[in-house]
Simulated scan of single mutants.
Amino acid sequence: MLEQKLEALKGIFAEMDRAIIAYSGGIDSTLVAKVAYDVLGDRALAVTAESPSLLPEDLEDAKIQALEIGILHQIIETHEMENPNYTSNPVNRCYFCKSELHDTLKPLALSLGYPYVVDGVNADDLRDYRPGIQAAKERGARSPLAEVGISKMEVREISKFLGLPWWDKPAQPCLSSRFPYGEEITIAKLQRVGRAELYLRKLGWQNLRVRSAGDTAKIELPPEQIKGFVLNTDLPQLVAAFQELGFIYVTLDLEGYRSGKLNQVLDLEIRDRHTPSQVTIG
């Protein structure tokens, strides 16, 4: 089944001739970049958006992975932080982020002669509240993984099958997802939460989130790792490090990390009220 889906994925790119990949360096878009390169060679271009919501270390990872794949790689700047519709952090914040990204990618693709822009949206993403998906579709982007029906787990399995060393890389969505809806996003806040997560990564904890709410940092880890974290971490030193970054309070989420947790505060009425089709971009 996986090999059939991989062949179907290759078939999509074989029909494209030339394509730009919206490449964040995450496991999904990296698989798309790998398959695109295997099929199209130098007719595939991976493009990474550099912005305050991406840690410099993650940008370096994206560069290293693109180099190992062999795909052409270009860095562009996006300016979603200049849009108050984004920085005010409404429930459809991702719509404005992806609008900025694809409003930058589309003219780039046209100017360079690439008829297609594709992203790393997978089949599981379609089952969550992801307003950015609609923004990409409105601008003509395609999502080959979702088209083939490849789930997040299958992304990892196919990546492992292809020998990609980062097949088990933790998911790393943009840093803006660390803030509760309605709290203003600033560059300083993004840098603070990014440095806090990097601090924990260097301690050996990889699959994690640091949620930021005002002056409080809430650490999320997989439930099975919580006990070991408490027993094996120098907690006073960790608190001191977080306070040096600007947090006042440091807490641990006892439920543990769960993808999409930010969206649990949304009910259907709120989601319907803020669907991207009802938003006027100013």
Rank of each mutant, 00 (worst) to 15 (best):
T104G: 07
G70D: 01
L101T: 09
R43H: 07
Y95R: 10
E68A: 14
N85C: 00
I64A: 12
L45E: 03
L55W: 12
G41P: 00
Q74L: 14
E77M: 04
I64M: 10
N89Q: 12
A109K: 01
K98H: 15
E68I: 10
H79R: 14
L55A: 15
T104N: 09
P52R: 12
T104R: 14
C94N: 14
C97P: 01
S88Q: 15
L67G: 08
I75G: 00
N85G: 07
Q65F: 15
I76Q: 02
P52E: 04
L59Y: 07
R93P: 00
E82G: 02
H102G: 00
K63V: 12
D61N: 09
K98V: 08
H79E: 04
H102K: 12
L59D: 00
N89C: 05
A46T: 08
P90C: 03
M81Q: 12
A62M: 13
L40M: 02
L110E: 12
N83W: 03
R93K: 12
I69R: 05
V91W: 04
E60N: 05
L108F: 14
T87N: 13
L54K: 11
N92F: 02
A66P: 01
H73D: 03
D58P: 11
L67T: 09
E60V: 12
V47T: 02
S51A: 15
K34Y: 10
S99I: 01
P56A: 07
P107G: 08
V39T: 03
E100Y: 08
H79D: 07
P107H: 11
N89V: 05
I75M: 05
A46V: 07
H79S: 04
H79W: 09
T78N: 09
V39S: 02
E68Q: 15
P84C: 03
I71Y: 03
D58A: 13
S53Q: 15
E60M: 06
S53F: 09
G41K: 08
I69A: 11
R93V: 01
H102Q: 10
R43S: 07
A62L: 14
L67A: 15
A49K: 03
E50P: 00
E100C: 07
Y95K: 08
L40G: 02
Y95L: 01
L101N: 06
H73P: 00
E77R: 15
P90D: 06
L72W: 02
L67K: 15
A109D: 06
P107A: 04
K98W: 12
T48E: 05
E50K: 14
L59A: 11
L72T: 05
Q74R: 14
D103H: 13
